[in-house]
């Protein structure tokens, strides 16, 4: 028999210290998770206790007003909803289209990886820079003015990289033997993409879309750059109307809280509305995703 290198006695002695270390690390990881959870909980509790009593039908349905007791956020809710009407189709079509091209059609080479890397980099560009881009391109050059279309397109640019990267990953994760089976029966590339690859990648794509949407719905910086007015009386009725949005409203009320103390409470109430809206949108996306979730 060969020489034995494992000294049973030594191994046994070391064992207890290894097990202790194991427990220690586990505790550390748990503590990091706990930290995040606690901060989040404190934040939520703080906002809810401050804002919840201000939420009522009038607050939700009224026009904006300088008078805190009469102010309502319907305009901002509609503005945010209209923004989503622009952002969702634009990012899904362009984002998924780009991902399909890069992942499935483009020749794998230097150029393709150069483009892919740069898209990932774009995801890290500060949102205010996108605001400036939107201001120059949509508001001034294309002369849309500071309307919903301009805001929506700016936010779309901002979140496109997130959608593209997520969709690329989802497409890449579809097992190659599924598309092989499809090609093997004489399917064209487009048939294979449409009927096999896209359905299999859909859950992953939607996960990316959820992330992107949550980001877009809460962005303030690019909208301030576009010059969205603080007070706006008429409700927006289409994508060519001027607007305000929930995060903008929160921003202005928070700033003005030094003038009128009650504004801070209105801001808190608006945050709750924004969170609920976000939660609703995410739930819808998750429902769609689960419906399409397939095992493979």
């Amino acid at each position: 028999m060969a020489t034995r290198y494992m000294d049973a006695e030594l191994v046994g002695k070391r064992m207890s210290s290894r097990v202790r270390k194991n427990t220690g690390w586990k505790g550390l990881f748990f503590a990091s998770t706990l930290f995040g959870l606690v901060v989040l909980a404190v934040l939520l509790v703080r906002i809810f206790t401050q804002g919840i009593e201000y939420i009522n039908i009038d607050f939700l349905m009224n026009h904006l007003s300088t008078d805190a007791s009469r102010a309502g956020i319907m305009g901002a809710i509609l503005g945010t909803a209209w923004l989503m009407v622009v952002v969702i189709p634009v990012t899904m079509v362009i984002g998924v289209g780009t991902a399909i091209y890069l992942e499935l059609y483009a020749k794998k080479g230097k150029l393709q990886s150069f483009i892919a890397t740069n898209i990932s980099n774009l995801a890290g560009v500060p949102s205010i820079v996108y605001g400036l881009l939107g201001l120059t391109l949509f508001v001034r050059t294309l002369e849309f003015g500071n309307v919903i279309l301009a805001g929506g397109l700016t936010l779309s640019l901002l979140v496109l990289p997130i959608v593209i990267v997520a969709a690329q990953e989802a497409l890449r994760a579809v097992p190659g033997n599924l598309s092989e089976a499809s090609y093997g029966m004489g399917a064209t590339k487009w048939q294979t993409v449409r009927r096999i690859i896209l359905p299999a990648a859909l859950p992953g794509i939607l996960t990316g879309a959820i992330l992107a949407l949550s980001r877009a719905i809460g962005e303030t910086a690019p909208l301030t750059v576009l010059g969205i007015p603080a007070l706006l009386i008429p409700f927006p009725e289409g994508i060519f109307d001027t607007f305000t949005a929930l995060p903008m409203q929160i921003y202005y009320w928070t700033i003005d809280a030094s003038l009128v103390a009650e504004y801070a409470n209105l801001a808190a109430a608006t945050i709750i509305v924004l969170l609920v809206l976000l939660f609703l949108l995410n739930s819808i996306a998750i429902l769609i995703r689960n419906k399409f979730q397939q095992r493979y």
Binding site: P175, N177, L178, A181, S182, G184, I196, A200, R295, Y296
Partner: peptide
């Protein structure tokens, strides 16, 4: 005109 059966069964989901 030429069908193929693969080593690992690959039904669609």
């Amino acid at each position: 005109q030429v069908g193929m059966v693969f080593q690992k069964a690959n039904p669609f989901p």
